[in-house]
Design a protein around this nucleic acid. Structure first.
Lengths: 202, 202
DNA sequence: GTCCATAAGTGCAACAGCTCAACTTTTTGC
DNA sequence: GCAAAAAGTTGAGCTGTTGCACTTATGGAC
């Protein structure tokens, strides 16, 4: 996520000097990585070069990020928070699948409408197979959390199978658009399916 | 896929000596790899060792398979054929989502009911993160083909967005069960959603 | 049957991502 | 102030993967 400086949705508010320094190092690495990737492409930038640019050792780099792909998707936690909030704080009367649909489409449109930095970021992810795959797997990692919230919001028991199913499918849906011209319509149809199906809950 | 010898659903029937030899080499590599993986685990077997066991060079190995994970999922093409057939040759009156549901469940049950070799194979995939991810991404690669068949079978125009959406979600559904006790029920609920939603087609 | 373009296979060196172990430097809580 | 813990460093090394230059076998044209 391109968020080089402060403007953050859910700033973790680092307190001690130690944690502040750690956060700064992490940020320096992520910034250097994103800058280089945007300049020259993901595959043409090596880990050692990123570490150099951020003035740390490769070992340090890997203490902050579990792998090369993760350098691009910094602040994954914020994404999960936004996702859960989209369901919890949906307008009264709106169905859960519809709330998820809107959240997905908002994300997608953030590139086209305005922020060119974010648009470039999306383009980078979309044009790099390794990043596309990672991105997809990343969202799926939030399935359990989303399922829990859906269960709460729909008054079903925690761990309910139908909630788990909906959570998983809703997270998979945005990627149905992969490489299609009519991307937005495909996403819409996917959520149509889920919305109609969900309304039919036993 | 554990299919060491002949018994093959869709044997490509190699003709010339050249192609036969090529197929034999490929099979030798896949066999050696699967054997070693089952014996000692995916991560504890190196590429060089597999190549040695199959008596080829690593270069040759990578001419036959695009990466380490692909060694496990030999004959991916057969899987796609089975998938498409499940939709095309479904019993009259059965909905497309239901046909896909049954296909998914049949696959899942093949491990539990009988063939211990296949059960061990599933266990290997399931317990190795790299293989789980690859497996999931692999199925998704068949989205376009499945979408085409769904369009044909439902009398919609090729390239229809709703068909693409259903195809993608149906392929994602089996993985909703990941790491859950009630795996089969989750898959069932996922297909319930899709079936109900699909019946509501505009 | 001979000959040649082509494809399969080889050996080796190298790169890139990632990890490990031993060690130095802060920083923090007491 | 001081000891313990955490951040960072260094450097070597493993593993998957690729490129390159080369040999061998095959299939088809003549």
């Amino acid at each position: 996520m391109p968020d080089s400086s402060e403007r953050s949705g859910t700033a973790p508010a680092p307190v001690g000097r130690r944690e502040r320094k750690k956060a700064a190092t992490r940020q320096a690495i992520a910034d250097a990585a994103l800058r280089l990737f945007l300049e020259r492409g993901y595959d043409d930038v090596g880990i050692r070069e990123i570490a150099d640019a951020a003035d740390v050792s490769t070992t340090t780099l890997f203490k902050h990020f579990p792998g090369k792909e993760a350098l691009v998707f910094d602040r994954e936690a914020d994404l999960e928070a936004g996702l859960l909030a989209a369901v919890r704080e949906r307008p009264r009367g709106r169905s859960i699948p519809d709330a998820l649909r809107e959240h997905a489409l908002r994300h997608r449109r953030a590139g086209a409408g305005g922020d060119p930095e974010f648009a470039a970021f999306l383009e980078l992810v979309d044009s790099t197979p390794a990043l596309r795959d990672y991105h997809q797997a990343m969202w799926l990692r939030h399935t359990a959390a989303l399922a829990r919230v859906i269960a709460e919001e729909s008054g079903r028991p925690a761990g309910d199978a139908a909630c788990a199913a909906l959570a998983h499918l809703a997270l998979a849906a945005p990627h149905a658009a992969r490489g299609r011209e009519d991307a937005e319509e495909v996403v819409d149809r996917a959520f149509d399916l889920l919305d109609a199906g969900w309304r039919d809950h036993a």
